[in-house]
Amino acid sequence: MSQLMWLAADGYNVTRRNLIKIKRMPELMVWVLMSPIMFVLLFSYVFGGSINVPGVNYREFLIAGIFAQTVVFGATYTGASLAEDMQKGIIDRFRSLPMTRSAVLVGRTASDIVYNVLSITIMSLTGLLVGWRIRTSFWEAVAGFGLLLLFSYAFSWVMATVGLAVPSPEVVNNASFMVIMPLTFVSNAFVPSDSLPTPLRIFAEWNPVSAVTQAARELFGNTNPLAPASEAWSMQNPILYTLIWVVVILAIFVPFAVALYKRAARK
């Protein structure tokens, strides 16, 4: 078999192992899925009344932002799981086996796609209940979900790198909180970016989380063409801008994570 076929086979086996864990610990999923539901409800009913988005119902505006926030936060799980495997010596065991070197990471990030599909499904259902609607064609909606998954996949590699670089899962959780909170809140996920003070507005406009949110909004038809998002190029071309981020992130973090994995020592 070729090298690539072995990578696929080994990656499949690692993915399978990760999914068994989700099956054995359903409570893990429950807690993870609770938070996006909470966000949908909180923002819809608590802040919804006081946030004004020109030309669009706030709940419709909000859902794509929650999608983006959730998949980005979900990547923390990738990093925390790897850190836990390393702490427990499982990575050492894998490294002593004649398997493809990158298969553990490929399998890890692949199983997190399954996990993100689950959480996006739950969020979509919650969204539909509070009044979110897809107003575009079937294929545009598919493209919207596809782009969210693609972005989350790329972001998983960022957190995989973090997970391999730090000594314990707790550190991943804290570190990611510090990065992901500003990244998701200083964006257009919850409020229109033009309501922000100038430096934050510029950050928000070029923030990839804003781009994937804006792209999803457009693909789901949750924007108002009469009230354009922003003049910035990134917001005028959110799909292209998101794809550029995906490519750049993968190009940097896949080799980085694999290199760390090869040197990984039990901490």
Partner: peptide
């Protein structure tokens, strides 16, 4: 240290 997966 035993390096087996606890969840499996």
């Amino acid at each position: 240290y035993a390096a087996v997966d606890e969840y499996l």
